[in-house]
Write a protein that binds this DNA or RNA. Sequence first.
DNA 1: TATGAGACTTAGGAGATACGGT
DNA 2: ACCGTATCTCCTAAGTCTCATA
Length: 607
Amino acid sequence: MSRYVFRIVQVVNYSLKLNGHTSVICLRNFDSSRQNLPKNATKKRRRWEEGQSLDRQKWKTLEHKGPLFPPEYEPLPKNVSFYYNGKAVRLSLAAEEVVTFYAKMLDHEYTTKETFQKNFFADWREEMTAEERDLIRKLSKCDFQEIHKYFVEKAEEKKAMTKEEKRALKEEANKQTEEYGYCLLDGHREKIGNFRVEPPGLFRGRGEHPKMGKLKKRILPEDITINCSEDSKIPVAPKGHSWKKVQHDNTVTWLASWVENVQGSIKYIMLNPSSKLKGEKDWQKYEIARKLKLKVDTIRRQYCSDWKSREMKKRQRGVAVYFIDKLALRAGNEKEEGETADTVGCCSLRVEHITLHEELDGQENMVEFDFLGKDSIRYYNKVPVEKRVFKNLKLFMENKNPEDELFDRINTTYLNKTLNESMMGLTAKVFRTFNASTTLQDQLNKLTHADMSLEEKILSYNRANRAVAILCNHQRAAPKTFEKSMQLLQEKIAQKRKQLDEAKKELKTAQTQHKVERTDKSRKLVEKKEKAVERLEEQLKKLLLQMTDREENKVIALGTSKLNYLDPRISVAWCKKFGVPVEKIYNKTQRDKFAWAIDMTDEDYEF
DNA sequence: TATGAGACTTAGGAGATACGGT
DNA sequence: ACCGTATCTCCTAAGTCTCATA
């Protein structure tokens, strides 16, 4: 504990130093008191350069053991076979491994999709020997059932393991985590986020991904770049192997990286969110959002006036920023067509994604949004907009095809460039953070009262959290067992009601009796019955609250906003103010991630 | 000004684990 | 103690944004 407190103090100092050196681009001029610094230009520049190098340098020393590789492929037993055209075929090791990936997924919906099948089959054939390729020409003639069955049985065996066996397995895993799961950054032992190399398998994109089913190849040490300090113990590659490269770049935070073969993107091994490095970055993110709070009125006035600009580009910018601010849309970078699922954000919206209604649901100037956003999550919303926005949208859509871009004169680079001119460090995503945190604070203020019970307070918190999740369109699939568990809860409530009625009746009887008898014993009985009624009433209320909460949460995911958008200091301050234990709001992982906020925040904190 | 690589944050789902009721 | 559900953790895909280069 004491070490931890010490570290937090360090964090604070570090940040002050950061501000003092006006280091981080986004935090430059952050502390308004610094703006009255000597105006000596040379001195100023020197400080900036110094700051920049300080900012770019992410660590002084970094030592780690390198990533942990997945186990080697274990060949199928002799009695488990793949069949082609009804005949058992013994495959080469490489081809067999790829087949097991597919066979394991047989009862997943993925394998019924044409794109998935096509991609898998093409990549599988690549792994085959010439003879195999010659023989195996049609997926429809392939039979993976036996292999599938084998893996199902194996999974069952694993489940049926004795407690002792399970414990031993866990022990082994813990040992691995202990060895590979931590690194030494500037002398502090820090948890690594993902210390395992991603195992080979079939790529599972989200939504209608054109590359679904493609083979994700096994990563070898020869594919991996190691990043660590020069004078540290350099990680040792597995026996008989060597790293692609060992570098000592302290301007980046990653420990290892490799290029993934499906999309050609780079994958990284990085620190856990609980680390000081990530924590400080997170903190900084919220500080920028708070800075936007001070500037947002001006910025809003600005984009409203852009709506009447003579330049079409400015008008489009004005409307786009308005959407980003009002609706918490993402920036919407352009993406390479055919490489990923067709999803959009603000700047990449197409004409087909919005419908204008002069009047809808009794309101004027309505815009109906319907598009797929990040992760192919549908965004559907009907919003009334200002007359001028409405007219502009009409103008932007004139003489365009449905598949044409709505904002054809702008892109995210341009938009962020102008945002940065309004406020240093401002980009499109800051609006999401800002609006999310502002909403949480407002809702908490509105929904919480000191005289509420603990459960009621928590419900209020969840509702505030939910308002944010709805704003940010954070969705989840309804739990498979939702209806059933809801019904169960219903029944429990009905039962509780019955019990309560019963208890009330008994109380009445006791009271009547007491009026007649007036004895100690009868008085005690009344008291006892009163208590029982009280207890039952409380239990019923609790159940009802639980039901409301669950119903409202059916397709809303609260976690994403809690983890990425809500300034944790708001929650911590709220907990302190209303006497809610912080563990009721944040679980262990979350408390670790937000350690910086939990330690430094008092109940008066305001976003 | 466009393009693409690179680095980092944000995202939902799968599987593992914890928990509460019987 | 067991079982089914709720919650947590891990996983890795999918975004955002910056920077270098032409």
